[in-house]
Design a protein around this nucleic acid. Structure first.
Lengths: 184, 184
DNA sequence: CTTAGTAACTAGTTTGTCTAACTATTATTA
DNA sequence: TAATAATAGTTAGACAAACTAGTTACTAAG
């Protein structure tokens, strides 16, 4: 399990051709080997995604959270999003959210608009420029992802979705207790 | 469409039961619906993982990169790892690596040892305490992940692995232009 | 009308990164 | 062999982005 080189383009697409061909007698050894191949593929995907995030962040000269905010806003441009919602989404303090919005406003990616119904709060809107920039760098990715799944059979889709849900459950259980044992 | 609540425990495991059942006539509409379900499941998994990382980091009072270094060191405790290797792994400057190692040394998670063959360089070793702490928080996760895939059929494994490889390729192509293209 | 609660912001601090300069050591070459 | 270049890691100082604590403006409840 070495993450080392997988962050550079090309190395993440190691051909799966033979790794997953299966046996007639489905012995425990084979199952273990297949399981490892699946987890390895997942790890490679994660590495590819982390690398993509960094490239995008660099090419847009923008922090991770700023980018997340833009993507969140652009996901449904009709929705009225307030800073508090972004605070919960990012899991940061309200102060940090304010700072992020300041930077995005200064760089011309968002605007702050008054909320007529509650004059304490405001609405955040992505500018056309933000839309264009994000679309230019990430736009094709979603299309490619969709193209990569559109040809899957119902059975394949079901297997993948079930797998992802089990994985989500697996990572959901980490570090929820802790500090009961060894705190100083 | 909203990432908002998916970062909290439990909400990531929305039952997939009906979303993926399939039709007799496999019309384009169904295929599109299935595709969206798959990508949605992937997005939920990602959110679960990000949340897990944060919980771990918080519970160990440690930065993301410190944790990455420890996991890297503990992956094969017999190997002699030098700071330069960690620098390349993390993709940071050598100065930042030094700072990270300073923090880890001060908190008792690593030790610096001399390299007798090249007195400019040193070896980094994780302490037993680091091993125990990491194992305690993340140890079970790998077991749970393995348990979540060990029962998959050869066909299911193949479908999942192929899916992950296609996804890796899809994200690999983002934002590679703009600057010097892929470098070796 | 007062008091409590909420939404966002400001100020000041801490953390973790960066670049540039530095020390010590090893490798190359004139 | 002496001079020079290259390498490994550290130190110093600057900056970006997070945090906590406190403020302002407003709404809701007694």
């Amino acid at each position: 399990m070495t993450d080392v080189e997988t962050t550079s383009r090309g190395l993440t697409s190691t051909g799966p051709t033979e790794e997953v061909t299966y046996w007639y007698g489905d012995e425990p050894t084979d199952r273990r080997r297949r399981s490892k191949a699946v987890l390895e593929a997942l790890r490679i995907y994660r590495a590819a995604e982390v690398a993509m995030r960094r490239r995008t962040r660099d090419s847009m000269a923008m922090g991770e959270n700023e980018l997340l905010v833009l993507r969140y806003l652009l996901r449904d441009p009709t929705r009225r999003v307030r800073p508090g919602e972004l605070t919960r989404y990012l899991g940061l303090s309200t102060a940090s959210t304010t700072a992020i919005l300041d930077r995005l406003e200064r760089s011309g990616h968002i605007t702050r608009a008054a909320n007529p119904e509650d004059r304490r709060s405001i609405f955040i809107q992505a500018t056309p420029r933000a839309d264009e920039e994000v679309r230019q760098t990430l736009g094709n990715m979603h299309d490619r992802m969709l193209a990569a799944v559109i040809d899957m059979s119902p059975e394949e889709s079901a297997a993948v979705v079930a797998f992802l849900h089990r994985m989500s459950d697996a990572v959901d259980g980490v570090a929820v207790d802790k500090r009961a044992v060894d705190s100083p």
